[in-house]
Each structure stands twice: as C-alpha cells, then as structure tokens.
Design a protein around this nucleic acid. Sequence first.
DNA 1: TATTGTTATACTCTATAACTATA
DNA 2: TATAGTTATAGAGTATAACAATA
Lengths: 146, 146
Amino acid sequence: MQLQQFLPYRLALLADAVSRSMAAVYHQRFELSRDEWRLLATLGGAGRVQAAEAAQLTTLDKMQASRALRSLQARGLVERQPDERDRRHVIVQLLPAGRALLRQLQPMVLAREAYLLEALDEAERAVLDRALDKLLQRARTLHRQG
Amino acid sequence: MQLQQFLPYRLALLADAVSRSMAAVYHQRFELSRDEWRLLATLGGAGRVQAAEAAQLTTLDKMQASRALRSLQARGLVERQPDERDRRHVIVQLLPAGRALLRQLQPMVLAREAYLLEALDEAERAVLDRALDKLLQRARTLHRQG
DNA sequence: TATTGTTATACTCTATAACTATA
DNA sequence: TATAGTTATAGAGTATAACAATA
C-alpha cells in the first residue's frame, strides 16, 4: 500500500494546503479564526438569521458558533439580539463594519480560489464538482454506519 | 458569495468526513492516532528507514514522528535502533506484531477507500487524480508566497 | 419537561524552541 | 559548529456535558 496514493491522505494534504493558503488572508491579515470567517461569509449573504441557522449553514456546532459570534460581536462586526417572539432564540446579523470588512476580504479569498481553479479546464472543473459531492455523500454514509 | 460552493470549504468538509470514516477503523478499532497509522502504513512498504525519512514520507515533522514512533515502539509494533554508522540517526522498522496489525487493518481501510471511489467511473477517477495533484501544486505555491 | 444558547472543562493537536547526543 | 532526534511548553482547536433562560 502506497500512502501517497491513498485518497484520504491526498485529500487531507490538499485540504490542509488549501486551507492554509486561505488562512493567510482571513487569519494573518484580518485576524479572524476559520469559524469567524465562515460565519462572516455566510451572514454576508443571509441577512438576519437565527444563531442555530448560522451554525447549520457553516457546519459548526452551536458551541463553536456561539463562541465565534461572541468574538465577532466584541469586534463590532455582528449584532446579536434576542428574538422578541421567542426569547430563547438569538437573531444575528452583520453590522456595517462587518460588511466593510467582508467587502475587503472576500475578493482576496475569491481571487485565491480562482487561481487554484485555473489549474483545471472547464470539463475538469465540472467533473471535480460532481466528484466532491459524490465522495462526500459516500463518506457520510460510511461515517453514519461507523 | 456562497460558502457552500467555495472550493476550500468543500474540500475541508470532504477531507474531514473521509478522515473520520477512516479513523473509525484505525482509531476506534485499533487505537492508533492518525500519525501512528500513517507511519505504520509507510513502514509496511518501506523496510528499514531512518526516522527522518519516515517523517518525510508521511508529511509529519520530526517531532510528530518522534512521538508517534515512541508510542508504536511502546506497543511492540516497531523497533528503533541507533544507526551504528552514525549514532545520531535512528533506524526504524516494523516488528512482526506491527506487520500482523497492518495485515488486519489495511484491507479494512482499503475497502473503505474502494467504496468511496465506486462513486466515480474510470474517467472521473482519472480526472480527479490529476485535479488533486494540480490543485495541491497551486495551493503550495500560494502558501509559499504567503 | 424540552429547547436555545452559553459556559466549563478536559482533551487532543499544533507550533516553537530548548535540549541531548553525536559528529 | 551543525545535525538528528527528543523533550518541554504554550496555544489553538475539539468534544462532552452541565447550566441558565425561556417556552
């Protein structure tokens, strides 16, 4: 068995390298954690959402989301308000400062993503796109079964 | 921007799900860490190698490799001996117990990898194979440049 | 009694660098 | 003085569950 050819290993290396190349922007340059960056990006397209919804959209659990949102609020980037109709819920939304930061950050990470994808032609991108979905589905099936 | 369509996010989710589906075997069933599993798999195909070589083949740094190898030795799975020609070097190799464990473990993870890849036809696998390499190359370029 | 979100805590990983022994 | 490997340690991330407020 060749570890270098083992799909899980190759995916781990790639995801790690890609993640680091993005973190160079959102972490080193904007001092956001990965979770904070994910929430910011999601809230940028989502308007007002419940905390649980924001967590679900970013694949964070409620605890990770809670901590990241608290930190974003402390920096004045997002607002958290109790939902008046059910005060157990918290409604989250970007503040202008968050929007401004996102307007700076987003083009930079999208440019990096574009640079990565330039390695592939249209047909290859289409195959990759479907392959990632299919593999994810199967990996989750394996994971559910233990 | 849609986080769900963002390549780095999708790769992270996939690599994480795939990694968990493999850890279900090597970790939960055989009580190996990811680093230990990587070293075991590599030593299975490599014979006697220097510690630094083993580290390089598994993309671990010398500290991670040192710890994982110590733990594998403590369990009687690998042997570490000083190199008589240069006693700063450590030569590592699998012991029979390590080989036996690998013979049990390897078919299980390879079966899981095969199940994942069954989601794709031959042409798709070929494209994925090249795409992963090309993306890794570009991600590393980005990472080197900061 | 159940649900949402928060807090506490312990555990694992990671990163940096100091240290040991050999050369 | 340089190298291979080990050890120490601090920081970040992760996982579980106890907890408070509300329903």
